[in-house]
């Protein structure tokens, strides 16, 4: 495996994501937790860019990093979110969870590395997915085109807006 620029970037992104994922769930301050989550989301966007899905990466940054994280930050400001962050530090409570998660992760690693994936495309030469293709696929009604889910998502979001207003409004 020769060391190309792409590989170097990938490794940096991989380490970045892994470290901040773990930090997100272990930090003691919720504000930091959100910040680390933002880093993880940006890292994910970077992976999408690496894969050539630039549109997806852009959406990820806009919606996740721009929308969701801002929402979380505001809700943290509105509440006393730092109190009682964790269920406790007792070993009796932490250990079973940690063990189960580790065993589960181990199982997944085992499956990943024993399963023989058959890559159709080269993992080295990445082409960018053109915006035109995405546009046609998104609003077309034929095979491999996604107008129906698109509309369904539209209706779902509308329902969410109404629901969110109903829940949040003051009586």
């Amino acid at each position: 495996m020769d060391i190309s620029l792409q590989n170097v970037v990938f490794i940096i992104v991989a380490i970045f994501i892994s470290v901040f994922s773990v930090l997100t769930v272990t930090t003691k301050k919720i504000m930091r937790s959100v910040t680390y989550l933002l880093f993880v989301l940006l890292g994910t966007a970077a992976i999408y860019f690496l894969l050539g899905y630039t549109f997806l990466g852009a959406v990820q940054i806009m919606v996740y990093a721009g929308g969701v994280v801002v929402l979380l930050v505001f809700s943290i400001f509105l509440t006393k979110a730092d109190e009682n962050l964790n269920i406790g530090t007792k070993i009796k409570k932490v250990l079973p969870i940690l063990l189960t998660v580790l065993i589960g992760g181990g199982l997944i690693f085992f499956i990943i590395f024993t399963h023989n994936f058959l890559p159709m495309a080269s993992t080295d030469a990445i082409e960018e997915l053109s915006m035109k293709t995405i546009g046609f696929a998104l609003v077309g009604g034929g095979k491999n085109q996604y107008i129906l889910p698109f509309e369904a998502i539209g209706v779902l979001l509308l329902a969410c807006i109404v629901g969110g207003l109903l829940i949040a409004r003051k009586r």
Binding site: I87, T100, V101, I103, G104, L107, F110, I111
Partner: peptide, 20 residues
């Protein structure tokens, strides 16, 4: 909720482990 989630996770781990 968290107890349920933990039991759920434990169940998945055990089942997947058994299948493997």
């Amino acid at each position: 909720v968290q107890q349920y989630a933990y039991v759920f996770l434990l169940g998945i781990v055990v089942i997947v482990g058994l299948i493997l």
